[in-house]
Design a protein around this nucleic acid. Sequence first.
DNA 1: ACCTGAACACCGTTCAAGT
DNA 2: ACCTGAACACCGTTCAAGT
Lengths: 200, 200
Amino acid sequence: MARRSDHTREEIHLMALEAAEAIASQEGLSGLSARKVASKIGYTVGTLYLVFRNLDDLILQVNDRTLSQLYQEMERVSAKPKKPEACILALSHTYIEFASNNTARWSMIYEHVLEDDFVLPAPFQQQVQQMFALVENALRPLGKNKSDREIAQAARALWSGIHGICLLALTRKLDIAGIDSVQDLADTLTVNFLNGFREN
Amino acid sequence: MARRSDHTREEIHLMALEAAEAIASQEGLSGLSARKVASKIGYTVGTLYLVFRNLDDLILQVNDRTLSQLYQEMERVSAKPKKPEACILALSHTYIEFASNNTARWSMIYEHVLEDDFVLPAPFQQQVQQMFALVENALRPLGKNKSDREIAQAARALWSGIHGICLLALTRKLDIAGIDSVQDLADTLTVNFLNGFREN
DNA sequence: ACCTGAACACCGTTCAAGT
DNA sequence: ACCTGAACACCGTTCAAGT
């Protein structure tokens, strides 16, 4: 056989990404394979390599889509006017809720280990910067005398912290028997951090 | 061939763990395979399954050893008398230094994804609890009016936070161009958190 | 009793060969 | 030009068969 041309290259590209998302959602990163994606879209493995450089490339593109979905939800939340502390708590809740509702896909962003020499594609880095920008904007009113660098540093410290709680809790590496939910843990971190950060 | 009996079961067990550690240190979790471990200790793959339930079991035991090494270093640091804040900063530095010096093995603890229904072995959970206990002890003098639950919650929130910074920075998922080192980021989190947490 | 090694069902990736 | 499918070099895991 061969020469099917049922779909354009762009269509195959999109179908593959959507198939990969479905597989990842159900079986996680370890259950995702080129052969499974190919068979799910009705093509042979070889075809995938006409559209993606390799499996890492495909995963990176799936992760990029997940990240942009997450960003959109956070952006929508931070658009509503709120006091700074309420804004940061709302962002944190949105982040945790997204991670809880899309655990497999969200985990995949962090489970996917890059080669030592691999440089993240620019669009991916921009996504990360955009997300931090939301936190920086919410933080700025609380530190009016602080430099941009200090704000940037604080945003990364706090957000990595919330991320860490989320990650350890969802992968059950955290021992939280008798401890409140992920949200409460994250709130504890945020509230104490902001109390220390705030100028008064 | 067969019937070699060059080594006892315990010897094979230990040799396999050490071989796995060496492979993991050099090639990371993704480079670790049963076949490689077996060939490194001069046995066949089948032999490994006489000593470990499966590869997950082997990995879990390697991770347990790594965790106990990390705990010992943290324990040694917290044994020296210090003011509470200095103690927590020192613990954080020890944690980050261990992660930097043993990145592959440290990452493996968190990269290793458990099955949904898998319950962590009791010794593993104890290790985690022990580590949190060190942080709780350092935190307690700063919150004399706080309940044990509040102290436990704060320790988990702060430590997950430091872990998150460490993880994102070492896997280069964090965009820290123009930002100071991992240590500085972690210090930012800790200092602000403690300022908010402290009763005065 | 202890260990082997072949077998099974999977991988990612490539590329000559078919239409 | 487009896609296939067989090939290669790997996996984890099992288990009959050798000594």
